[in-house]
C-alpha cells in the first residue's frame, strides 16, 4: 500500500535552497517504512531541523495524515529562504507546521526539552573545509566541515535534550561521517540505534539511522564505560555488523569510496 507524500511538482524552490535529492528521498522512505510504528508511537510534537524545501516535513505530515491524532509539527532552518520555500511547499499541499528561522533549535531548547517525540534531520553532512560551514546561501545546506561532522555534532546534543523519553530521532548520515562512531557515542547517552534505510550511489553511501532511548542502556554521563550489560553491547554490535555489511563501509574518506 502506498501512502501520500509530498509531490515534487508542488515543492517550491529558490536558488539558495536545497532541492529534494537522494538523501531527502531516502529519509522519507525511512519514515514511510516505519509509518505503522510511528502511528503506534502517537507522537504529540514532531520536529524537523533544517527543513530546506519542506519536502520531508510535508511528506511526514501527509503520510501520518488524519491518523496523526492532532500531532503538532515544528520545523527550523538557518536559511530564511528555506523557511519561505517550506511555507510555500506546505501551503501547496494543504498542511501546516510552525516554522522558525533559527540555528538548529536555538530558542526552543529550554521549553521544548524532553517534549519532542519525533525528530527528523537531514543535516549538512558533506566533508568540506571548516570555514565553509554555516556560510550564507546554498553552501550551508551541505557543508559539514571535517568528516562532515561539524553540524551533526552540534545537532546531536540538542536532539538528546529535545527528545522525550519515548522520542525517536531519524538522521541522514554518510559513510564519511563515521555512522558507527555516532551510534556508539549516542549509546553512551542511552540511545539504541538501527539503520532503517541504506542506499549507495557512485558518490556516496547514505544511511538513515533511527535512534531511540533504550532503558536497558544506562546513560553514561562520565564518558567512562561502567556498563557491562550484555544487551546494550549487543545492540551496538548489531548496528556495527549492519554497517559493516554495507558496501563501501570501512572507508572514512569519501574520495576513496568512489572508484
Amino acid at each position: 500500500m502506498s501512502y501520500k507524500i509530498a509531490q515534487i511538482r508542488l515543492v517550491s524552490s529558490h536558488p539558495e535552497v536545497y532541492e529534494p535529492c537522494d538523501d531527502s528521498f531516502a529519509l522519507v522512505d525511512a519514515l514511510l517504512s516505519d509509518r505503522n510504528n510511528l502511528l503506534e508511537l502517537k507522537p504529540m510534537l514532531c520536529m524537523e531541523v533544517g527543513c530546506g524545501s519542506g519536502y520531508v516535513i510535508t511528506s511526514l505530515m501527509l503520510m501520518l495524515g488524519e491518523e496523526a491524532n492532532g500531532a503538532q509539527f515544528i520545523a527550523t532552518d538557518i536559511n530564511h529562504h528555506a523557511i519561505k520555500v517550506t511555507q510555500e511547499t506546505m501551503e501547496a499541499h494543504g498542511v501546516y507546521a510552525e516554522l522558525i528561522n533559527t540555528d538548529i533549535a536555538s530558542g526552543l531548547e529550554n521549553r521544548l526539552a524532553g517534549s519532542v517525540d519525533l525528530l527528523v534531520v537531514n543535516p549538512p553532512y558533506v566533508p568540506t573545509p571548516e570555514d565553509e560551514v554555516g556560510r550564507e546561501g546554498i553552501a550551508s545546506a551541505w557543508a559539514g566541515g571535517e568528516n562532515g561532522r561539524s553540524v551533526i555534532d552540534k545537532i546531536l546534543p540538542v536532539a538528546e535534550k529535545l527528545l522525550s523519553k519515548r522520542g525517536w530521532l531519524y538522521m541522514v548520515t554518510l559513510t564519511a561521517n563515521n555512522p558507527s562512531q555516532i551510534c556508539r557515542q549516542m549509546m553512551k547517552k542511552g540511545y539504541a540505534s538501527k539503520i532503517v534505510v541504506q542506499r549507495s550511489t557512485v558518490e556516496e553511501s547514505l544511511h538513515i539511522i533511527k535512534f531511540w532511548k533504550d532503558n536497558d542502556i544506562e546513560a553514561d554521563t562520565n564518558d567512562v564505560i561502567t556498563n557491562s550489560k550484555a544487551v546494550p553491547l549487543g545492540i551496538v554490535d548489531s548496528v556495527r555488523s549492519q554497517i559493516q555489511r554495507l558496501s563501501f563501509w570501512g572507508s572514512c574518506d569519501i574520495n576513496t569510496t568512489t572508484n
Partner: peptide, 21 residues
C-alpha cells in the same frame, strides 16, 4: 506563529537567565 510556539520559545541570548516568556 501560534501561542503554542510562543509558549515554547525563550530568548537565546548568551548570559540571559530569565529568557521566558
Amino acid at each position: 506563529m501560534r501561542l503554542l510556539t510562543h509558549n515554547m520559545l525563550s530568548s537565546n541570548i548568551k548570559g540571559v537567565t530569565n529568557g521566558f516568556p
